[in-house]
Computed example of a mutant assay.
Amino acid sequence: MRDTFVRTLLEEAEINSKIELVTGDLGFGVLKPYWEALPDQFTNAGIAEQNMTTLAAGMALEGKIVFTYSIGNFPTLRCLEQIRNDCAYHNANVKIVCVGGGFVYGSLGMSHQATEDIAILRSLPNVTVVCPGDLVEAKEATKAIANMPGTCYLRLGRGGEKRIHKYIKDFEIGKAVLIRTNKHETSPKIAVFSTGAILDDATEACNELEKKGINLMQYSFHTVKPIDKDTIRKCTLECDYIVTIEEHNIIGGFGSAVSEVMSEVDGKAKIIRMGINDEYCIRVGDQKYLREQYGISKGAIMRRIGDL
């Protein structure tokens, strides 16, 4: 996802001189093609994320489209006050990019893990929250936020994510992507929703469950705010269960956003939220290992849906 983002941003910046990329002293290996091609549209703000964000807000208020870039919690929680006061309050054209959502930097410990970011950023007025699930979604999301006004949060994986979609027709911020629909009428009818790079495990789990005859619909929610209320309402009325999957705390995150919409619909679906169960990660290991430890791996998804 990281490489896809940089390639796409470079393409957009080459045709729009207003686009600026500001890094918090990170990502030099992957950002090199950008700064070599467009040195006048690139700034290294140093390890000073609060300053980076205020700088970006000032540039945006002078007419620029500014992308700030760092890993894990650094471009979000470390500079939350600046995002709130300098960017969101003024509806400034700043795009906050986190590389390493969830457990990507698991080997570096919880200080480098982004597991509360969706909940916190979506609570800020004027902030669009985008969490692409694969390379195709990452490309389309980068193009979309580069060409829309206002403050946005783009939550990416790191590298090595699988390509799930061949292409997405008519990609739209705030519109979920249908991956599969039920092929038979057995009961119960289950809709599987996911956001972010956990899409790979969710899709592999759904592939296996479908082979076992379990009735599934699957959607990728690349946008958490504004969320696709129409799809949620439809599934709430038609399905027996909605299972939400996120590499994030279940408190305030994607599952909570879905629950908020469901609570206003007189439907029959029950929601099952899969994510980190309101705890900090105290284990150390790679992303795959931590997904297994905290119950959001392919196997855990299969077991939870199978139990329904």
Rank of each mutant, 00 (worst) to 15 (best):
M1V: 14
R2W: 14
R2K: 11
F5D: 10
F5C: 14
V6L: 08
V6M: 12
E12R: 00
E14P: 06
I15L: 04
S17Q: 13
I19R: 09
I19E: 00
T23F: 05
G27I: 01
W35N: 11
L38K: 10
Q41D: 07
A45V: 00
I47A: 07
E49Q: 09
Q50H: 09
N51Q: 03
M52A: 12
T53Q: 12
A57L: 04
L61E: 03
L61Q: 09
G63I: 00
V66M: 01
Y69D: 08
G72F: 08
N73C: 13
P75D: 03
L77D: 10
L80Y: 14
R84F: 01
N85I: 07
D86A: 03
C87V: 01
H90L: 01
V97W: 02
V97P: 05
V99A: 14
G101I: 07
G101K: 08
G101V: 11
G102N: 04
G102M: 07
Y105D: 11
S107T: 12
G109R: 00
M110F: 11
S111N: 12
S111C: 14
Q113K: 02
A114G: 06
A114E: 02
A114D: 01
A119G: 10
L121V: 14
L121G: 02
L124V: 14
N126E: 05
T128R: 01
V130Y: 01
C131H: 06
E140P: 12
T142E: 07
A144M: 08
I145T: 01
M148F: 06
G150R: 05
Y153L: 02
Y153P: 03
L154T: 13
G159F: 15
E161Q: 15
K166P: 13
I168D: 02
D170W: 10
F171V: 08
I173E: 12
K175P: 11
A176R: 01
A176L: 11
T181M: 11
T181D: 14
P188I: 04
P188L: 04
K189F: 09
A191G: 10
A191Y: 06
V192A: 13
F193A: 06
S194H: 14
S194N: 15
I198D: 00
I198P: 06
L199Y: 09
D200Y: 15
D200F: 13
D201W: 12
A202M: 11
E204T: 06
A205D: 01
K211I: 00
K211G: 02
K212V: 00
G213Y: 05
L216I: 05
Q218L: 15
Q218K: 09
Y219L: 12
S220V: 14
F221G: 07
K225C: 08
I227L: 13
R233Y: 00
K234C: 07
C235P: 01
E238W: 00
C239S: 10
Y241L: 02
I242G: 02
T244A: 12
I245S: 10
H248W: 09
I250R: 00
G252L: 01
G252P: 07
G253Y: 08
G255F: 10
S256T: 14
A257Y: 04
S259A: 15
K268H: 04
A269Y: 13
I272M: 07
R273F: 10
M274D: 06
Y280F: 15
Y280H: 08
I282F: 15
R283S: 10
V284I: 14
V284D: 08
Q287S: 07
K288S: 05
L290Y: 02
E292L: 09
I296P: 04
G299W: 06
G299C: 05
